[in-house]
Design a protein around this nucleic acid. Structure first.
Lengths: 142, 142
DNA sequence: CCTGAACCTTTCTAGCTTGAACGTTTCGAG
DNA sequence: CTCGAAACGTTCAAGCTAGAAAGGTTCAGG
C-alpha cells in the first residue's frame, strides 16, 4: 500500500534460485575435495564442523539438517574410526562427539583442500564481507 | 598473488555455512507450502520453473540438479497429470515438457502461496537487490 | 556416405534427507 | 516427591540426489 506496488515476486524467485545455485556450487566443491580423501560431501561437512566436542544436536544445527540425519552421517564416520560417541559429562541424554587421532589428522588435510580454489573466488574480500552481513540478516535467528 | 594474505579461510567457512543455511531456509519454506498442495519440495520447484515449454536439461539447469534427477521428479509430476512429455519440435533426442491444464492451475496456486511470508523478509528491497548482484557475480557462469 | 564425438534422456545403484514414532533422561510445577 | 512436558538421540519408511552406464540422435569431417 505504502509503496513498491508490484515487482517483488519475480526478483524474489530469481533470488531464491541464485541462493540455491550458489549452495549447490559450494556443495560440489566440497564433494570433489572430499572424494579425494574417501569421504562423501556430508561426511566432510560434519568433519569440518567438528571444531571441538559437540552433541548430536549441535552438529545437526551446524550442518543445517535434522538430528536423524546427523545420526546417519556420524554412524559412517564412526565406522571409519574418525569420531567417537562418548558419554556427555553433564547430561546423560546427550552424546559427546570427539575426533579420534585419525579424525583430527584427516580433518587437517580436509581443511587444506577446502581452502584451495574457493567457490567464492568471484568475489573480493570486501564483497564477501558485504555478503556475510546480508546473509546474517536474512537467516532467521532463534 | 591470487588472494589476499590475511583473514580469508575462517570467514569463508562461515560464509559457506550461511549460504547453505539460507538455502535450507528457503527449501523449508517451499516444503511447507508445497505440502499444502500435495506436492514435495522438488516437485514444487520444478513446477515453479515451468514458465513455458522446457527440455529435461533446461529444467535440470533451472533446478540446479542433474538430469537424472529431473527424470525422477518429472516422472512423479507426469503421474499426477500435471505435465506432459511431448516430442520436441526440432530435436528428436529431446523431450518437450508442457504443463497440462491442471498443472497450469496448480502452478498458479503454488505461486500465490510462495509469495506469502517470504523467506527473505529480513531484507529490505534494496538489500535484496544488493544480494542479487553479489550472488550473480559469485555464481560461475558457463 | 560414414564415422566418431558430443548431446539428450533414461535406468540403475548407492547414498543422503526428512518426518514421525519411540525410549530415555531432564526439569519445573504442584 | 511425583507427574507431565520437553529435550536428546535413534529407528524406520518414503522420498530425493548424484554419478556411471547405455540407447538413441545430431553434427562436423573426411
Amino acid at each position: 500500500m505504502t509503496n513498491s506496488p508490484q515487482q517483488p515476486t519475480v526478483a524474489e524467485r530469481e533470488l531464491c534460485g541464485l541462493v540455491n545455485g550458489l549452495a549447490q556450487q559450494i556443495a560440489d566443491h566440497v564433494r570433489v575435495r572430499a572424494a579425494a580423501l574417501g569421504l562423501t560431501a556430508p561426511q566432510a561437512t560434519a568433519l569440518r564442523e567438528m571444531t571441538g566436542p559437540l552433541t548430536m544436536r549441535e552438529l545437526a544445527d551446524r550442518m543445517s539438517c535434522e538430528p536423524s540425519n546427523a545420526t546417519f552421517v556420524v554412524d559412517r564416520l564412526e565406522k571409519q574410526g574418525l569420531v567417537e560417541r562418548r558419554a556427555h559429562p553433564t547430561d546423560r541424554r546427550a552424546r559427546h562427539l570427539v575426533l579420534t587421532a585419525e579424525g583430527t589428522a584427516l580433518r587437517a588435510r580436509l581443511l587444506e583442500l577446502l581452502a584451495q580454489d574457493s567457490p567464492l573466488a568471484g568475489l573480493t574480500g570486501e564483497q564477501q564481507t558485504q555478503l556475510q552481513q546480508l546473509l546474517q540478516q536474512a537467516v532467521v535467528r532463534r
